[in-house]
């Protein structure tokens, strides 16, 4: 068993590399298929064909597509993310400016949403069918049924415009003390938590209830094991796999999927960098972001799968 885990991790990592390669290939293909290129996007509405042609040469866009992909790939393999074609800055520099912001937002959201969601799911499962469960069910469904941009806009209207407690924009650069920090992150984190907590709480509840429905828990109940202990000692360990998977998939959304929050609160994160890069057909930047999101997703899923495998020894042989 000690030998199988590292082997598993190694196997997953190597297949992750393959996935990353596939993603980069597909992203490249899509970028080439999209009408318009960086030169046209830079020159904008009022570009002349001669200008576009000249700028293409300048940016190296006149080279064959596969050659350009090869340049990018060989650079990436050696850790060089290349230059952003649309503003001439190094991609690593652009990412460097924004990635910490995204990671911080993701970390705070995770730290708040995961415990709350697990707790809600746990309580709902323990009080299954009761009023608490019913209320939590409606609450989580409502949270997920309100569009994110509506939640964010309502929050701004209430807390920033009417009450004036919180700033409408989230500037990372103006943080001086803990108070500022809380004020700045309150609304973005609240908005993100709405979506994530609902998702994760529902999944936790479902996974636990499946366990509680099973025969061995009924046996424990008949033996007189108290309800708290039944859930925490018997059901929970077996539900870890599914819950971990649910959490991992929800969290993978926190890097690339938070564009609405970044837009409404003007938070300089990596998701809006990606969206800009797509609009600008900035291949190197799109690729770097895609690799980041895909890598984060694969790592999260791998960790979840490892949890699942640890909880179900039969899977180790697969």
């Amino acid at each position: 068993m000690r030998n199988t885990m590292p082997k598993l991790v190694l196997g997953r990592l190597s297949s992750s590399l393959l996935t990353l390669f596939l993603v980069s290939l597909v992203i490249f293909a899509i970028t080439s298929l999209l009408p318009g290129d960086t030169a046209q996007q830079i020159l904008g509405q009022f570009a002349t064909p001669e200008q576009v042609a000249a700028l293409r040469v300048e940016l190296g866009l006149d080279q064959p597509a596969l050659l350009r992909y090869w340049h990018w790939l060989s650079g990436f393999a050696t850790g060089d993310l290349g230059m952003s074609a649309s503003n001439g800055m190094a991609v690593s520099q652009l990412m460097n400016d924004r990635l910490p912001n995204s990671l911080l937002l993701a970390a705070i959201t995770t730290a708040i949403s995961v415990p709350v969601a697990l707790l809600m799911g746990l309580v709902a499962a323990m009080r299954r069918g009761g009023n608490v469960d019913r209320v939590l069910n409606i609450v989580t469904l409502s949270m997920v049924a309100v569009p994110e941009f509506l939640v964010a806009t309502i929050a701004v209207l209430i807390f920033a415009v009417h009450l004036g407690w919180l700033p409408a924009l989230s500037y990372v650069s103006t943080v001086d003390n803990l108070g500022d920090f809380v004020r700045i992150y309150a609304m973005p984190v609240l908005t993100l938590c709405c979506v994530l907590i609902a998702q994760m709480a529902r999944m936790t509840r479902a996974a636990l209830i499946d366990q509680l429905d099973s025969a061995y828990i009924e046996m424990a109940r008949l033996k007189g094991v108290p309800p708290m202990r039944r859930v925490l000692r018997h059901a929970l360990p077996n539900a870890v796999g599914p819950i971990a998977n649910a959490v991992a998939l929800s969290l993978s959304y926190l890097l690339g999927g938070v564009i609405i929050v970044e837009t409404i609160f003007n938070y300089p994160g990596i998701a809006s960098l990606m969206v800009d890069a797509v609009s600008n057909r900035d291949l190197a930047l799109v690729q770097a972001c895609a690799m980041l999101f895909c890598g984060a997703y694969l790592i999260l899923v791998m960790v979840a799968d490892l949890c699942a495998i640890l909880s179900n020894p039969r899977l180790r042989n697969r």
């Binding site: 077996n238 998939l249 929800s250 999927g257 564009i259």
Partner: peptide, 17 residues
């Protein structure tokens, strides 16, 4: 809603149970 495809997972029952 630029939806970096949002994965949702709700695994229900753990099958061996």
């Amino acid at each position: 809603s630029e939806t970096h495809a949002m994965p949702h997972r709700r695994p229900g029952l753990s099958p061996h149970q």
